[in-house]
Computed example of a mutant assay.
Amino acid sequence: MGKRIFVLLAALAAWQNWERIETFTGLKPAPQVAASNADAPVVLYATTWCGYCAKTRSFLAEQGIRYTEFDIEKSSEGRRAYDALGGKGIPLMTIGDTVIRGYNPEGIKAALR
């Protein structure tokens, strides 16, 4: 009688935790959570006279990437955010939590993957 109860309890426990058992034994792969910046907000800190800022704007437009721009010479909010990011040059971009300094098309593409 004791063996039957043990087997019954073991079967019940297995049934209640079947998804964990499948994942642990490799019968079912664990769900992958992709950390992607594809939908992350893109913010450009720039000036009107900067040539590399213009190249960055052109690149973003060519790629169809939506972004918010702050002119750090005209926007006090933009300047504060730029300074908080340790801004020491332009253009400076944020894509989600990723900071990209200078004109860097490959860095932008990589950050959006």
Results as ranks from 00 to 15, higher is better:
72 I>E: 00
30 A>I: 14
60 L>Y: 02
65 I>L: 04
113 R>D: 10
1 M>L: 11
56 T>Y: 03
84 A>L: 10
45 Y>G: 01
10 A>Q: 05
29 P>H: 07
107 G>K: 05
11 A>Q: 08
37 N>D: 02
85 L>A: 10
28 K>H: 05
43 V>E: 01
80 R>P: 02
61 A>V: 08
98 T>S: 03
70 F>I: 04
6 F>Y: 07
79 R>N: 15
5 I>S: 11
26 G>M: 06
64 G>M: 05
73 E>H: 06
96 G>L: 13
11 A>D: 11
22 E>K: 13
72 I>G: 00
63 Q>I: 13
40 A>I: 01
29 P>G: 01
22 E>I: 11
109 K>G: 07
85 L>C: 11
104 N>S: 09
104 N>V: 08
112 L>A: 11
31 P>A: 15
106 E>P: 07
98 T>M: 05
17 N>Y: 07
32 Q>R: 06
9 L>V: 14
25 T>P: 04
38 A>I: 15
19 E>F: 14
103 Y>V: 13
37 N>Y: 02
66 R>N: 12
4 R>E: 11
36 S>Y: 10
25 T>F: 13
51 G>F: 07
41 P>R: 14
50 C>T: 09
91 P>E: 02
43 V>L: 04
4 R>K: 14
95 I>V: 12
76 S>Q: 15
87 G>S: 06
79 R>V: 14
23 T>G: 12
19 E>S: 13
15 W>G: 15
35 A>M: 13
48 T>L: 09
